[in-house]
């Protein structure tokens, strides 16, 4: 029997493979195609206090092994989620993590507060890293003072395990990690999308209505790996690795460098069953290598020279 259970501070997960916010809807959209109760956790689409319409189209463009999006945080709002989506999702016996966002520190805190009162949520993930909206999102993720304010405000309002999702679009992600740990986050997830753009030489127009967006998919995996490495080596809180993970090998790379769990994002769009295949792949890998516990593999990267 191989143990896949991981413990990220106050958050215990049946296995280290979750699905990332914005790539799995509100949890049930793909449930006809896969058994979502096998997942380590579902991070639902980022929620704001009131519904948000999102950005004008076109909102997505495919690039080399990647996808640039500027959805603009379209969501149904926290109340609608709690009343209509959450009850059905909770029947599936899978950890539900809610991604939260806001235009102001107060809005983040309010959303956190409302969700804390809703039964059955396993953790909150604070989104201070969306590159696609002017107010909120990225501003809070690139300014250390703002990041501190958001995280500590949400921290005051909830006893739920708190994850803070960091952007790679900073010079020193380790410094941002330190700040959010000081502000009280239990866990860090990284990375959100990489700021990017695409243009059309024939029409001479940007390919996204928002001009720029966030790049995800296999193209960003090496960037993500380095950013996660920086975070792992700067702070002591558990880290969730995100960025271009499409196979069990990709997932194991993040675990090898010290992430204690991972999230699968863009790959869900191509094959909704990716995460389940990754869980099975990790299990077989451990079996083949006579490792009986995933925790013995996590952080076992061997370096020839001292760091």
């Amino acid at each position: 029997m191989i143990n896949l259970e991981v413990t990220l501070g106050p958050l215990k997960l049946p296995n280290p493979v979750m699905v990332a916010s914005g790539t799995f809807g509100y949890g049930l959209e793909y449930s006809s195609l896969l058994d979502i109760s096998k997942l380590g956790g579902i991070v639902v689409k980022g929620l704001s206090l009131k519904p948000r319409p999102g950005n004008p189209p076109p909102r997505i463009v495919e690039t080399c092994a990647g996808l640039i999006n500027s959805i603009g945080l379209e969501n149904v709002g926290v109340e609608d989620f709690i009343n209509k989506k959450l009850p059905l999702l909770l029947k599936r016996d899978v950890p539900v993590i809610v991604n939260i966002l806001g235009n102001t520190v107060e809005e983040y805190a309010e959303v956190g507060n409302i969700l804390s009162d809703a039964e059955g949520i396993s953790a909150l993930e604070i989104n201070i890293s969306c590159p696609n909206v002017k107010s909120g999102g990225i501003i809070f993720g690139t300014d250390p003072k703002q990041a501190y304010n958001v995280v500590s405000a949400v921290r005051k309002n909830t006893s739920l395990p708190l994850i803070t999702k960091l952007t790679p679009n900073v010079t020193d992600i380790g410094m941002m990690a330190k700040v959010v740990v000081e502000a009280g986050t239990d866990i860090i997830s990284a990375i959100n999308t990489v700021s990017a753009m695409a243009v059309d030489i024939n029409t001479r127009k940007p390919k996204l209505a928002n001009v720029f967006g966030g790049l995800s998919g296999p193209a960003i995996k090496p960037i993500a790996l380095k950013k996660v490495w920086d975070v792992v080596n700067t702070v002591d809180v558990p880290v969730i690795g995100i960025g271009g993970i499409s196979s069990y090998e990709d997932a194991l790379e993040f675990l090898l460098i010290g992430a204690q769990a991972i999230q699968v994002g863009t790959a869900n769009f191509i094959n909704p069953g990716t995460s389940i295949e990754i869980i099975e792949g990790i299990r077989s890998f451990l079996e083949r290598n006579n490792i009986d516990d995933i925790n013995k593999f996590i952080g076992s990267l061997e370096l020839d020279t001292a760091k």
Partner: peptide
């Protein structure tokens, strides 16, 4: 991107 109402990319 997804075709199933998840990514909100085709709106």
């Amino acid at each position: 991107a997804c075709g199933m109402g998840v990514c909100l990319g085709c709106s």
